[in-house]
């Protein structure tokens, strides 16, 4: 165990050699970029084109998350292993995804069938169709 000396007692301790103090205008600039990206992520899907929706909504979400993590959370100047730690747990989530996704996303395989999931899809689609038909039908006279 090493100890930081008492000269850190009255100041926020950095704990590492990287202690960057950006001016407030730097953070306001990052916020402005985030706001522009947010506006694009809302406007993009309004075009109704699937690939544009995926790129603007989800692609921009990744870009926004990167900006917040790098510049607001200061991950860009943290010790490298902190980034690796967070990426490692993200890797575990991906592992979970690839392990479970085939069983959840598909409702039947060579030797199995997820009857409950199939019925849920059928019920949901039927309810939507009934709702749409009800909305299209002329109003009954009173």
């Amino acid at each position: 165990m090493s100890t930081h000396a008492a000269d850190h007692a009255h100041a926020p301790d950095s704990g590492d050699e990287h202690e960057h103090v950006h001016p407030p205008s730097f953070y306001v600039k990052i916020w402005a970029i985030l706001t522009v990206l947010f506006a694009i992520s809302v406007a993009g899907p309004m075009l109704g084109v699937k690939i544009v929706t995926i790129l603007t909504a989800f692609g921009i979400a990744i870009a926004k998350a990167y900006l917040v993590c790098a510049y607001f959370m200061h991950l860009n100047i943290q010790r490298r292993w902190v980034v690796y730690l967070e990426l490692a747990v993200l890797g575990m989530v991906l592992l979970f995804w690839f392990g479970v996704a085939p069983d959840v996303m598909k409702h039947e395989g060579q030797n199995w069938e997820n009857v409950a999931a199939k019925q849920a899809v059928e019920r949901g689609m039927a309810a939507h169709a009934a709702g749409a038909a009800h909305a299209d039908a002329p109003a009954a006279p009173h």
Partner: peptide, 13 residues
Amino acid sequence: ASYVMQRLGHPEW
């Protein structure tokens, strides 16, 4: 991740 899996498997969502 669970939400996305379910969402892709359930078009009615």
